[in-house]
Design a protein around this nucleic acid. Structure first.
Length: 299
DNA sequence: AGAGTAGCCTGTAAGC
DNA sequence: TGCTTACAGGCTACTC
C-alpha cells in the first residue's frame, strides 16, 4: 500500500514525465463521490483545467502538485490510489475514477479500487496537512527528535510509529520493517524505550524507507497489487521486505519463525527472538507486579 | 488528552 | 458449488 516510499517514487516519476505539462481536460467519475474534497467535482475540474504543472513535492504520504497559478493540487493515495501515465488509446485500466488530459497528448489516469483516495485544490498545501509530524528523511529528523516526539506516549511503539502527527509517512509495512531492523517488539510502550533503542529505531526507520525507495516501492498486497507505479509496473521492494507478510517464515537474522499479532487492529509481524516481548505486558499486568513487589530496590 | 475502535470500500481467500 | 465471513489498511470521527 502506498506509504512514503511509494509516494516518493510516484513523485520522482511524475517529475520526469509531466513537469511543465498543461492539464487540458479533467473528468472525475460520479462513482468516486469522496475523491474530491471541499468543492464539487465540476468546480474542481473547472479550476484544474488549463493549469500547468510547475512542481512536484511530497510531504509524508501526500503528493503535492504545484500549479502555475500558485495553487496546489494535493493528492493522497490512501490504500489503493494509483496515478498512471497513459496514451489515450492504451487499454483501459481497471478502477479508473478520474482522467486528466495533458498537452503532450497523454493522460494521467487515477485508479483506486477502494475509493479511499482524496484530492484537494487549495491555495496553500499546508492547510491540508497541518498536523503532520516531521519528515523522516530530512536531516533535521534525528534520534533525539524521535525520542522527544514518541517518548512520552504510553501506547505500543508500533501504534506510535503509525501516528502521522508523531512522524509523517510510515505505514504498516515500513513500521514492521523499522521495528524488526531495530529489534524492538511492536507492543513495547513507546515511553519505555531506552535511548539506545531510539537510536536503533531511528536507524531502522531510515533503512526501511530507503530500502522502499530504492526498490521503487512495495507492491505487496492481499488483493490486487495496491501500489503500482506511474508506468503501471509494480515496485520491487517487497523482495527485500524482512518482516511484513512473513508470518511463519524464518527470520532472516536468526531463523526463528516470524509471528503475527494484532496491534491496534493492525497486523504486525515480528521475530519473537530478535524482538523480545515487553517484560510486564501492559496495564493490569504491570500494576499486579507492582503490588506483588512493593519494595523498589534502588538501581 | 490520550487510548481504543467503528467505519469507509471492495476484492480475495478461507470456512461451511 | 455457492454462500458468508474475515481480512487487508490510511485516516477520520467517535467514545471512554
Amino acid at each position: 500500500m502506498p506509504e512514503l516510499p511509494e509516494v516518493e517514487t510516484l513523485r520522482r516519476d511524475l517529475e520526469a514525465r509531466v513537469l511543465g505539462r498543461r492539464i487540458t481536460s479533467c473528468a472525475v467519475s460520479a462513482d468516486a463521490p469522496r475523491l474530491v474534497q471541499l468543492v464539487t467535482r465540476d468546480e474542481f475540474c473547472r479550476q484544474l483545467r488549463g493549469r500547468a504543472i510547475a512542481g512536484l513535492r511530497r510531504r509524508g504520504k501526500y503528493l503535492i502538485v504545484d500549479l502555475d497559478d500558485g495553487r496546489a493540487w494535493v493528492i493522497h493515495r490512501r490504500m489503493s490510489g494509483n496515478l498512471l501515465y497513459r496514451a489515450p488509446d492504451d487499454a483501459p485500466d481497471a478502477f479508473t475514477r478520474a482522467v486528466f488530459g495533458l498537452d503532450d497528448g497523454h493522460e494521467l489516469r487515477w485508479t483506486d479500487l477502494r475509493k479511499f483516495g482524496t484530492m484537494w485544490l487549495v491555495e496553500d498545501a499546508t492547510m491540508v496537512m497541518e498536523s503532520l509530524g516531521p519528515e523522516p528523511l530530512d536531516a533535521a529528523f534525528t534520534p533525539g527528535v524521535l525520542r522527544e516526539r514518541a517518548g512520552r506516549r504510553s501506547a505500543p511503539v508500533k501504534a506510535v510509529l503509525l501516528d502521522q502527527t508523531v512522524l509523517a509517512g510510515m505505514g504498516n509495512l515500513y513500521a514492521d520493517e523499522a521495528l524488526h531492523h531495530a529489534r524492538i517488539h511492536p507492543l513495547r510502550p513507546a515511553n519505555r524505550l531506552r535511548a539506545a533503542e531510539f537510536e536503533r529505531l531511528h536507524a531502522g526507520i531510515l533503512a526501511a524507507l530507503r530500502m522502499g525507495i530504492e526498490g521503487r516501492g512495495s507492491s505487496l498486497g492481499t488483493t490486487l497489487r495496491d501500489h503500482i507505479n506511474l508506468d503501471g509496473a509494480p515496485g520491487a521492494s517487497q523482495e527485500t521486505v524482512r518482516a511484513y507478510g512473513r508470518e511463519g517464515e524464518p527470520c532472516y537474522a536468526c531463523g526463528t519463525l516470524m509471528r503475527r499479532i494484532k496491534v491496534r487492529g493492525r497486523s504486525s509481524v515480528f521475530c519473537p527472538r530478535c524482538q523480545p516481548a515487553p517484560r510486564a505486558g501492559r496495564g493490569a499486568t504491570a500494576a499486579r507486579r507492582k503490588r506483588a513487589a512493593p519494595k523498589r530496590r534502588p538501581a
